[in-house]
């Protein structure tokens, strides 16, 4: 680039002579003063300015630490019932009850449930399910959606038509209903019992959202295919696979990341709803289960006792509300970071 400009400038000014000093000065002027900023660093810079998004990210990181360190943080075993010591229906710590077995104590910050399990410890362990159920299906949906979208968009023609009609069918299915039917159908099969039903939840929650990703990727690929840089790559003899991998995929990543950020809270909410209906995570009595309960199941348990122990219901609902809020903030921040035109509005 620099040599081209230099050539034309020198010809224009001094004919065939060799103007070394001016050339050097020009070289210096045209040299980049700082390394070029990539899309990623640009996006990160914009994302960092969004205070809500950073707060959301910090909260999610905090929850991730809680989830990993759950055995250390939780004061009691979340599955073990300890009626003799914890009492039945012990109230939250700050609530006084004339019955000494019911009155709140800081040993059980949020009280205990009807079989004497510590609600706070269950809440801490519930973080694990919400995070895992948010991220794992997201990885599945993005991979499937990208594959289908790339195939449909790049191959075009009959393949495109077939794949898109298929996504139309999936799109018409009311997703929550499909989730419910899936869970009911396979809950008692062997696959429904893996990891307390988590594996089935992963599959169920991945069934629908990939369609959104596929449609998005297909649209982007169709637009990118017409771009000059793809034509240039083809002109120098790049193979189809390398064009897709090196020129098309990197350019679709921005919008995909934004969509992925919104898929996560959607999956968390769906899991909570399914568990609330009693067809999500399976209740367990295993003392060392890594995923003993989820916030959705806790809402179900809490809604049965909400008049006597409102905190059993309030705590998990606030947990779900705050995590979805955090993810929405991050999603909004990512959208603004990757699509600055929208952010201006």
């Amino acid at each position: 680039m620099a040599s081209l400009i230099r050539g034309s400038v020198s010809k224009g000014r001094r004919g065939m002579a060799a103007p070394t000093t001016t050339m050097r000065a020009l070289d210096r002027d045209l040299e980049l003063r700082r390394p070029p900023r990539s899309l990623w660093s640009d996006a990160w810079r914009r994302f960092r300015k969004n205070r809500l998004a950073i707060a959301g990210l910090a909260y999610i990181l905090f929850l991730a630490i809680v989830a990993i360190a759950a055995p250390v943080i939780a004061p009691h075993n979340p599955v073990q019932s300890d009626v003799q010591h914890a009492g039945v229906f012990r109230q939250a710590a700050w609530i006084h009850d004339p019955n000494p077995m019911r009155t709140g104590t800081w040993e059980y910050p949020l009280g205990t449930d009807s079989v004497g399990r510590d609600v706070f410890s269950r809440l801490v362990y519930g973080t694990r399910v919400s995070l895992v159920v948010g991220f794992v299906p997201m990885v599945f949906t993005v991979s499937i959606g990208m594959l289908v979208g790339l195939l449909a968009g790049y191959a075009g023609g009959r393949v495109d038509n077939l794949l898109m009609r298929f996504t139309d069918v999936v799109y018409a299915f009311p997703d929550l209903l499909l989730f419910i039917i899936m869970q009911v159908a396979f809950q008692d099969a062997w696959i429904g019992k893996l990891l307390n039903g988590l594996v089935l939840l992963f599959i169920t929650l991945s069934l629908v959202s990939w369609v959104t990703v596929a449609r998005l990727v297909r649209g982007e690929v169709l637009a990118l295919k017409q771009k000059e840089f793809v034509e240039a790559a083809r002109a120098i003899g790049a193979s189809g696979a390398s064009i897709v991998a090196r020129h098309i995929v990197p350019n679709t990543l921005g919008p995909i990341i934004v969509v992925a950020a919104y898929i996560v809270p959607g999956a968390i909410i769906s899991e909570a709803i399914l568990s609330y209906l009693g067809i999500g995570i399976r209740p367990t009595v295993q003392l060392d289960a890594p995923f003993p309960t989820s916030w959705g199941s806790m809402i179900l348990e809490g809604s049965k006792a909400w008049e006597s122990q409102p905190w059993m219901l309030i705590a998990p609902t606030l947990a779900v509300a705050s995590i979805t809020l955090a993810f929405t903030f991050v999603g909004d921040g990512l959208r603004d970071a990757f699509d600055p035109r929208q952010a201006e509005r």
């Binding site: 809270p265 709803i273 609330y276 809402i299 909400w306 309030i314 509300a321 809020l325």
Partner: peptide, 13 residues
């Protein structure tokens, strides 16, 4: 961002 069933539960309480 907050799902309606969560809001529903809180509204009832």
């Amino acid at each position: 961002s907050v799902p309606s069933f969560i809001i529903g539960v809180l509204v009832i309480i």
